[in-house]
Write a protein that binds this DNA or RNA. Structure first.
Lengths: 142, 142, 142, 142
DNA sequence: TTTT
DNA sequence: TTTT
């Protein structure tokens, strides 16, 4: 009875950081920028261009694809869901992050493949159940 | 060159708060919950149900519709985009909020209308012109 | 490098027809109606309400869920992709049908469960690769 | 109470055909191909690549943008709705066509602009007003 | 053939 | 803070 879906087309802000959990599950994270063009209102007000940064998190096969094929500057389509998570920062202050857990990705920049790699079958998609790490979505300051 | 789209079906956590800006523009805010059902992994691990809370922000006509027709507990479809915003909290600490700016809403609970109101034309959407030429969708051979 | 995604919220026109292929794979088909409300243009022209009928096709687990829980009149969310298919009608004339192959479904009507059934875990979603029956999408008269 | 949404990323099959109605409204039509990669099933069956052709129809401003900037071979994101239409063919046989009425388009190929034209503001969308309050999306702690 |  |  619920839907939580995000679709983004944007540019990768940094090369993905990939780590492997104890169970050898890969997790990739990287920022993705979407940009709205600026425009002028009827009354002459200039609304400037605006860039939104999204924290992308990929798991398993998608993370491995990202490790091999995704680079800073690439244009990507990402489909997934919104997840909130809290953590305590270095000053013991509780912080909230919103992340996009991607379950489908399309590479929209066509780059020459790196030596020793083969191009990914697309669409690359996570098989069914995605892992659910410790996270919290309560107490949002809203 | 960019897409920032969110689609949610969930339940309204609180009656909308509606305020009017100096230019008489209405802004409505309310929390919306999406819930993923829990499940059991192949290895027997129980993944519990998980609720995500989304900060919905509606403008103008959509805000006015929300003021009249949206109530705590209602099931809604919301389409919009992700927007981040920062503010300084009461301790001068910079905080970030992620909000969903809705530009399309569908009311999925059919409630009896309140006395003195009329049901909204649906879909309620930020105004758009879309011409409707002669066309037919009947008698499909299916 | 490609995306083909459809999202529908509408009403089921008929109880699903479910058949089982030789390999015991279930396939369910039913029509789903989406309706745009009519409205009046600035120049006074009345644009009438318009109903679009979609041919929904579900496979495997989703088809089995549809067989048990989906009924005429129900409101559904369906996510999937567009597929065209051709066939020769009884007069040997080549006909084209467009179908929506659903891979995600949400039941938006909450009906009392039928005796002897248990509610489906939701969201019900097809696990990865969906079967690709004989179909053709070429030579469209466009 | 209804949603009819399609999202496509694909390649333009032919340069758009643009015509102008009596009221000077522009209408552009062109085919767009989405392609699913082939794959091999667990039992060894080869599922071949499959291309789906979509009949895109754009109106007004979007049609004018397509006339200027969209060409055969371009990669596009198109968002819109499914519309069915019937007509009688040259043999008096009733035919049905399914079209995608686009209301949002993103050009994903970056081509050098043609002489005498300026690049389109993007996203190009059927006009909408959406207020932009003070907000910040930088310095996210990620 | 649905629904509001 | 919702809902099943």
């Amino acid at each position: 009875m619920s839907l939580n879906k995000v679709q983004l087309i944007g540019n990768v802000g940094k090369d993905p950081e990939v780590r492997y959990l104890d169970n050898h599950v890969a997790v990739a994270t990287f920022p993705l920028a979407t940009t709205e063009k600026g425009y002028t209102l009827a009354n002459g007000t200039q609304v400037p261009e605006r860039t939104e940064w999204h924290n992308i998190v990929l798991w398993r096969g998608l993370a491995e694809v990202a490790e091999k094929y995704v680079h800073k500057g690439d244009k990507l389509y990402i489909e997934g869901k919104i997840r909130s998570r809290s953590y305590d920062d270095q000053n013991g202050i509780k912080r909230y992050v919103v992340e996009i857990f991607g379950d489908n990705m399309e590479m929209l920049s066509s780059r020459p493949a790196q030596a020793g790699t083969t191009p990914p079958a697309q669409p690359v998609q996570t098989p069914q159940a995605s892992p659910q790490p410790n996270s919290a979505a309560d107490d949002l300051p809203f």
